[in-house]
């Protein structure tokens, strides 16, 4: 059984170490008319657990993707895990950045017809000799063992041989977490990891996230629409509204009025 109790941050804010991610005046637009991010200044320190909140379309997912170069930054600068870039990170820089980052999507994004073990081994894709991560059949023994260990962290080691699409939604999301953690990244980014799950599975997945990040010293940045998740599992909440940072404060000092302000629709 998983421990469903919320994992509170183990590090006090004042004692946190160097910035692991910083953005300066980050802007992103998909076309000339629509600017999604309008100058984001954000700092995340190693060991922090940060929840990014905001209504639909405020730019949360776009911001996450810009941080690891999945989307091109229109203006401003990103420094993530020692890599500074504008626009898109260059080839080798992108590889270094992604090697140190784990990403969990709202939909688990597993390869359905592959085994659970193969999906976790895919987490090794950025390692040298990446072709061996195509499947568990081609992977070296050390990667197979690391993947099985990551599956044990999420209590799914007994499902290693099963096909990914034979698992429930919650189990698939746990496999996605194992895939993101198998290389023990410095930074784990999760885009609404509990959104496609029922409340119990969602709570289960979030508890697992925060516990594993605490155990392995991984910095966590996640987005959520569930304020109880943001308050319980993060030590800092950053709210976005209309492409700007509305507030950035410790989770335990965030009030209901703050939350209400984030989701209030402005009268035209």
């Amino acid at each position: 059984m998983l421990d469903l109790s919320p994992a509170r941050p183990s590090t006090a804010r004042g004692a946190l170490s160097d910035p692991i991610v910083t953005t300066g005046g980050l802007r992103k637009s998909y076309d000339r008319k629509t600017e999604i991010l309008k100058g984001i200044d954000l700092t995340i320190r190693a060991g922090e657990r940060v929840a990014l909140i905001g209504s639909n379309g405020c730019g949360k997912s776009t911001l996450l993707r810009c941080l690891i170069g999945l989307h091109e930054v229109s203006a401003g600068e990103v420094t993530a895990l020692g890599e500074t870039f504008t626009g898109l990170p260059a080839g080798a820089q992108k590889a270094r950045l992604r090697r140190k980052t784990g990403f969990v999507f709202q939909k688990h994004c597993l390869v359905r017809r592959r085994s659970v073990l193969s999906n976790v081994i895919h987490g090794m894709m950025s390692e040298p000799g990446s072709w061996r991560a195509f499947s568990q059949m081609t992977a070296p023994e050390t990667w197979r063992r690391a993947a099985l260990e990551a599956l044990a962290w999420v209590n799914l080691a007994d499902k290693a041989a099963a096909r990914a699409d034979a698992l429930s939604g919650g189990q698939q999301q746990r496999v996605a977490i194992a895939r993101a953690l198998v290389r023990q990244p410095a930074l784990l980014i999760a885009d609404e990891p509990a959104a496609s799950l029922d409340p119990v599975s969602g709570q289960d997945v979030m508890a697992l996230f925060t516990r594993l990040c605490a155990e392995h010293g991984i910095t966590l940045l996640f987005t959520s629409h569930d304020m109880s998740h943001a308050r319980s599992f993060a030590d800092r909440i950053v709210a976005l509204k209309a492409g700007r940072v509305l507030f950035d404060k410790p989770a335990d000092t965030t009030t209901d009025a703050d939350i209400e302000e984030v989701f209030r629709v402005e009268a035209r």
Binding site: L70, H122, F134
Partner: peptide
């Protein structure tokens, strides 16, 4: 997209996903 986010290249995406 997941394999790209992990750091996979075009060949990894072809064979992995």
């Amino acid at each position: 997209e997941a394999i790209s986010a992990i750091g996979g290249n075009r060949l990894s995406i072809l064979f992995g996903a």
